[in-house]
Amino acid sequence: MSEASLPAPVVILNATQLAENIGATARVMANFGLSDLRLVNPRDGWPQERAWALASGAEWPLNAARVYDSVAAAIADLQVVYATTARPRELTLPVLTPRAAAAELAEAAGQGQKTGLLFGGERAGLETADIALCQAVVTIPIDPRFRSLNLGQAVAINAYEWRTAQQDAAPANFRERSEPATGEALLGLYEHLERELDAAGFFHPPEKTPNMIQNLRSALGKARFTDQEVRTLRGVVTALSRGRGKVLEKIAKKKGEGS
């Protein structure tokens, strides 16, 4: 298999503060054969001339970069997305090194799945709610004596590991199972389930609702549902909600007859 035979992961930068870091990201993307760059709410808007200056000629990721107003929108068409961050205590997602993550992403790409790597902003990193939309966490094993790592460096390490992992990836025409669900389909399932749980009074006390939602999403995301499984699960949720409605109707009817 040739090195360029697999579709490379999309690189998503969330809330990037400095144009220079976007340019540095484009440069290392070009070094290692990645080209699809997506920006979520860059602090200073887009485009920014300083990004092109720092890219040192690697203009094609910048020229084709797309801007989104949320992480959910940026990953809507992707089927496997890994968040690059320190391990979040609130979630129980698998935690991988860049090398292990690259091997899994290459395998997924070989099965025809669209993949992505999500990076947080320079200061705050990624919000737990955004990490909960991903299927795993990628953590770089840096020396604990100095944990500061530039955004461009983090992208470079992951891009390098992706490049070297391709030689061991499964053939691009290999299919293990039916088409995996996209981020958009998964979000639809999450929101559908959350609406019905809310109607059933599941989220109690109210102040714990955000954490409960994040935990539900991360637990479901780890299953890596296929598109067919998502449709089936949404049908299950709909059937259960209708069944609850019929039970409530019967109770109300009996109460009316007894009054």
Score class of each variant (00 low, 15 high):
A156E: 08
T139Q: 07
R38Q: 10
R242W: 01
E104M: 14
I22G: 07
R242Q: 10
A156F: 06
Q113A: 15
S70F: 06
D69R: 12
R175N: 05
A132T: 05
P47S: 15
E127T: 03
P180I: 13
P47E: 12
T128C: 07
R242E: 09
G188H: 05
I157T: 03
W46F: 13
L233K: 03
D130I: 02
G120T: 04
A169E: 03
S70W: 04
A239T: 04
G152Q: 12
F225V: 08
A30D: 13
G110C: 06
P171K: 09
V155Q: 08
A4D: 03
P7M: 10
E176R: 10
E90A: 15
L187V: 09
S148A: 13
G243N: 02
V138A: 08
W60L: 12
L13F: 00
P7E: 10
N41Y: 00
A200E: 02
W60G: 04
L105K: 06
A165Y: 05
S35L: 05
P7A: 14
N150C: 11
N21E: 05
S2K: 06
W162M: 08
E257L: 12
E191A: 15
A15Q: 14
W52V: 14
E249T: 00
P94I: 10
D77V: 13
P7Y: 03
Q135P: 03
Y68H: 12
A64K: 15
L193G: 10
G120M: 05
F202H: 12
F146G: 14
P180H: 06
L78M: 15
T232V: 09
E207F: 01
S35I: 04
A30F: 11
T97H: 11
I157Q: 04
Q48K: 07
N21M: 08
F225W: 12
A170N: 01
A108Q: 06
G125V: 02
N63E: 07
D69H: 13
S241N: 04
T84N: 05
A102N: 10
S56L: 11
S178Y: 05
V155S: 07
P141L: 10
P144A: 12
I157Y: 06
R224W: 00
L151M: 08
Q111I: 05
P88N: 06
Y68P: 00
V95D: 00
A101Y: 02
A76F: 02
F119M: 11
R89S: 04
R147G: 14
A8K: 06
E3F: 01
N173T: 11
G121I: 09
G235H: 12
G125P: 00
A106W: 01
A55Q: 11
R50C: 10
L62K: 09
L117P: 00
I75R: 09
Q167T: 11
R89Q: 06
C134E: 02
E194T: 07
R43Q: 14
T85H: 04
D130S: 05
L149W: 00
G258T: 06
L34S: 02
M1R: 13
R147A: 15
S70K: 13
L189H: 01
L118D: 00
R27N: 15
D69K: 10
F32V: 04
A165N: 14
A101P: 00
R234G: 12
Q153F: 08
V95R: 06
L220K: 03
A109F: 05
